[in-house]
Design a protein around this nucleic acid. Structure first.
Lengths: 158, 158
DNA sequence: TTTAATCCGAGTAACTCACTCAGAATTAAT
DNA sequence: ATTAATTCTGAGTGAGTTACTCGGATTAAA
């Protein structure tokens, strides 16, 4: 359970990549995809979300690319992940901003599991809010890697 | 993201139901499903996992049913949910018991996101370990409810 | 004008989810 | 002994999600 999808994983990787080059140069998706070993066309979808949420800025045309809209220390992982993966809530009863959504049970006054999900959500959100992008950036940009095709999409069952 | 499935949700509800009747009587699945408003045949699948994990015991035949194997205060939600939903890890790099699984990136020494998922996992597991089943049980068994069919499976998008 | 890039919408194979269906095995009550 | 109530087991399924790909339009530097 509770696994994050490649949207979140790849998106965070992209953000870390951009943080390494913050205030240095624009990064094109082809560069990012080569250095991080991720499929370009899939990244296009992800970075659209990041741009719509104003976490990154883009420049079109030749020698275009992306850069962070804000310094890495002002970008919290809660923001990044909620943009990429949707609400950080483990259950429909609860939403990110505190607004509540009705479900069949709580209308009938019997949502015994609610406090469980509420506490879990609180834990998830507060940890993700406490981590900023610059904490995940190692000073040196590592050498470009190539991940073999077969080693993607690994999942643990039980 | 981070949403739990109905396996987890229903399974926790079943455990809460059984906790209410702990040391009182056996509960049949048809009773549970009627009182909680959940589909019987789906519960059969879920409770099999709970039984295999020795969280509940069963008695077959007429007037059979289920009961908790241990008192509710000795059952942690981390146990229940990992049985129902699989590992509580947000990413394949990390597993519940601390044993590590290789992924394409960390073998190449470039798993920049690892510490993020590690901290998230730590938060999730420690909160779920801190909550025992009896904390979720309200003293009085509530009146049986009937959840209208349409109101299941509600999900928030973004 | 060529080339390199972002943008955009659609399509898709594989998988997961949330169940249902059919029936066998076991036990209590009659 | 028969019936009824229950747990057990395995298989199937429609809808949705995931993790992509494909084809092309748009923009801008060289």
């Amino acid at each position: 359970m509770m696994h994050i999808s490649t949207k979140g994983e790849y998106g965070v990787r992209v953000m870390i990549d951009l943080a390494r080059y913050y205030n240095k140069k624009l990064r094109s998706l082809t560069d990012i995809s080569q250095d991080e070993g991720l499929p370009v066309q899939y990244l296009e979808q992800l970075i659209k979300k990041l741009r719509d949420a104003d976490l990154v800025m883009s420049a079109r045309g030749a020698h275009g690319g992306y850069q962070l809209s804000r310094p890495p220390e002002e970008i919290r992982m809660s923001e990044v992940l909620s943009v990429l993966e949707g609400a950080l809530s483990p259950y429909a009863c609860l939403s990110v901003n505190g607004a509540e959504v009705a479900c069949g049970w709580d209308k009938l006054g019997s949502c015994s599991t609610r406090s469980l999900w509420a506490r879990l959500q609180e834990a998830i959100i507060s940890t993700l809010e406490s981590i900023t992008l610059n904490e995940l950036v190692d000073s040196e940009p590592p050498a470009p890697i190539r991940v073999p095709e077969q080693q993607r999409n690994i999942k643990i069952q039980l």
